[in-house]
Amino acid sequence: MPTPHAILSPTERERYRRQMQLPGFGQESQERLKSATALVTGVGGLGGTAALYLAAAGVGRLILVRGGNLQRDDLNRQVLMTDDWVGKPRVFKAQQALAAFNPDIEIEAVCEYVTAENIDGLVQRADIALDCAFDFKERDLLNAACVRWGKPMVEAAMNAMEGYLLTVIPGKTPCLSCLFPEKPEWDCWGFGVLGAVSGTLACLAALEAIKLVAGLGEPLLGQLLTMDLARAEFAKRRAYHDPDCPVCGGVKAKGDRTIPVVMARS
Rank of each mutant, 00 (worst) to 15 (best):
Met1Lys: 13
Thr3Ser: 13
His5Leu: 12
His5Thr: 15
Leu8Phe: 10
Arg13Ala: 03
Arg13Ile: 08
Glu14Gly: 02
Glu14Arg: 14
Tyr16Ala: 06
Arg17Lys: 11
Arg17Val: 11
Met20Cys: 10
Gln21Met: 15
Leu22Ile: 11
Gln27Lys: 08
Leu33Asn: 03
Ser35Leu: 05
Ala36Gln: 04
Thr37Tyr: 03
Leu39Cys: 12
Val40Cys: 08
Gly42His: 08
Gly42Arg: 07
Val43Ala: 08
Gly44Trp: 04
Gly45Ala: 07
Gly45Leu: 07
Gly47Thr: 06
Gly47Met: 08
Thr49Tyr: 10
Leu54Ala: 05
Ala55Lys: 04
Ala55Phe: 05
Arg61Asp: 00
Val65Trp: 07
Leu75Thr: 06
Leu75Glu: 06
Leu80Asp: 04
Thr82Trp: 09
Asp83Glu: 15
Trp85Asn: 07
Val91Gly: 08
Val91Ala: 08
Ala94Glu: 01
Gln95Lys: 15
Gln96Asp: 15
Gln96Ser: 14
Gln96Phe: 04
Leu98Glu: 09
Ala99Lys: 14
Ala100Pro: 00
Phe101His: 13
Phe101Gln: 14
Ile105Asp: 08
Ile107Trp: 03
Ala109Ser: 14
Val110Cys: 09
Glu112Phe: 06
Glu117Asn: 13
Asn118Cys: 08
Ile119Val: 15
Asp120Trp: 05
Leu122Asp: 09
Val123Lys: 04
Arg125Asn: 10
Arg125Ala: 15
Ala126Asp: 02
Phe134Leu: 06
Asp135Thr: 10
Asp140Phe: 14
Leu141Asp: 06
Leu141Pro: 03
Leu141Arg: 01
Val147Phe: 04
Arg148His: 15
Gly150Ala: 10
Ala156Val: 14
Met161Ser: 09
Glu162Phe: 11
Leu165Ala: 04
Ile169Trp: 13
Ile169Ala: 13
Lys172His: 13
Cys175Asp: 11
Leu179Tyr: 04
Pro181Trp: 12
Glu182Trp: 00
Pro184Ile: 11
Glu185Asp: 11
Asp187His: 14
Gly190Glu: 12
Val193His: 05
Leu194Val: 10
Gly195His: 09
Val197Lys: 02
Gly199Ile: 08
Gly199Thr: 07
Leu201Cys: 12
Ala205Ser: 15
Ala205Trp: 01
Ala206Thr: 06
Ala209Tyr: 05
Leu212Arg: 10
Leu216Asp: 00
Gly217Val: 05
Glu218Phe: 01
Leu220Met: 14
Leu221Met: 11
Leu221Ile: 11
Gln223Ser: 10
Leu224Cys: 06
Leu224Ile: 08
Leu225Tyr: 01
Asp228Thr: 05
Asp228Val: 07
Leu229Cys: 03
Leu229His: 05
Leu229Gln: 05
Ala230Gln: 12
Lys236Gln: 14
Asp242Pro: 03
Asp242Cys: 11
Asp244Ile: 00
Pro246Glu: 06
Pro246Tyr: 03
Gly249Leu: 09
Gly255Asn: 08
Thr258Gln: 01
Arg265Tyr: 02
Arg265Pro: 00
